[in-house]
Amino acid sequence: MNEIEVKNVSFTYPGDETNPPVRALDGVTLEIEKGSFTVILGHNGSGKSTLARIICMIDSPEYGSVVIDGRDMTAEDVTDKDVLDARRKVGMVFQNPDNQIVATIVEEDVAFGCENLGVPSDEIRRRVDEALETVGMTKYARHAPHKLSGGQKQRVAIAGVIAMRRECIIFDESTAMLDPMGRREVLETIDRLNEDGITVVLITHYMEEATRADKVYVLNEGRVLTSGTPSEVFSDPETLWKASLDVPQTTELLYKLKQRGLDVPLDVFDPEKCAKVIRDALKKKKAENGG
């Protein structure tokens, strides 16, 4: 069962006197299964954020269709209520942690979405406490958001999304502006949400973040360049390099060794396992040379 289906979607940003129109998406098709962890990779300007905006119905596609939980959101008979229903299912966490927090107190911000949905007060209270617990921010419930670190702010934003009981969360480069500690906090939270059954779509240009996915889509110049499991995608570093992306350092190392004739697989991302396959390959090579 698919949470989101994007079918052959195109989108062009209109130009003005000084700027020509920009075709941001050009026939993108992808499927996101319920409960899965999908990563969308692409360099800046590859169209990945436009895609997020289209899935969240902030922009509508020029061509093609977007289906959320079985309902075609691009059909002609879509009402405001349908859009609201879809937004109850699919939430989004943005890049800049500062620009998505509305209230002056953490718990008030987490409650914001539920308040919009008209959830009764005591139910909101319960959900807010639960959501803050999930992201580990209970201690900061009464704090002012502007005094939190970037990672903490993003966790507040995530709590706001989960308090609305959404099935799917799209993270639009939500880790890009964070320091390593903040990134780790947020990624750990995302992993936990996915384990709890929430569909996760993570948009990023950090390769290490992609290794945890069930499925990776690589976007380049508005098209899907390649897709598959992380192992499949990263076993072809040349393609990624062409799209001005990197591969994890482990893959790069294994790729270089393989080119020089060492028999190693490319799809090992954990440093320990990587060391192990190299050692094994070296042993094997020695045995061959010796024998």
Binding site: F94, Q100, F112, C114, E115, N116, G118, S121
Partner: peptide
């Protein structure tokens, strides 16, 4: 920031004061 925030609020189902409840 204003435009980002407007988008974020829309994504959080904000449609104005109608039908809104309050936690506190």
């Amino acid at each position: 920031r204003a435009s980002d925030l407007a988008t974020a609020m829309e994504c959080r189902c904000y449609t104005g004061g109608k039908g809104r409840t309050r936690m506190n």
